[in-house]
Amino acid sequence: MIDENTVRHVARLARLRLEPEEEKVMQEELSGILEHIDAIRSMDLDGVPPTTHVLALENVLRADVPRPSLPREEALREADDVVDESFGVPRMD
């Protein structure tokens, strides 16, 4: 079982605001997921390479040839705020 502080830490990293009762639920659900990992760990996996991808594909590459970009109006259409032809965001400095 992972502790409450770990849940809060992970929530902060993911920019999630959790109510205390939600923290409790998350604690249980995350612990449940980690138990699955423990089940895998209990097996003898010496010599088994880690699976990073489920597709047996390599080298899917693209030629360095330009393709049309979006018109700016379209790119900015979903922006919350448009300032100086750019995406306006809360102050960052």
Partner: peptide
Amino acid sequence: GCELSFGDPPNVHTCPVCLAHPGVLPVVNE
């Protein structure tokens, strides 16, 4: 496939991939 540039007006080299629209897939530049 958006072109690289320096000094162009803002936000003229964007597409759903580099703007991170949902459901897009990146492909590596060879």
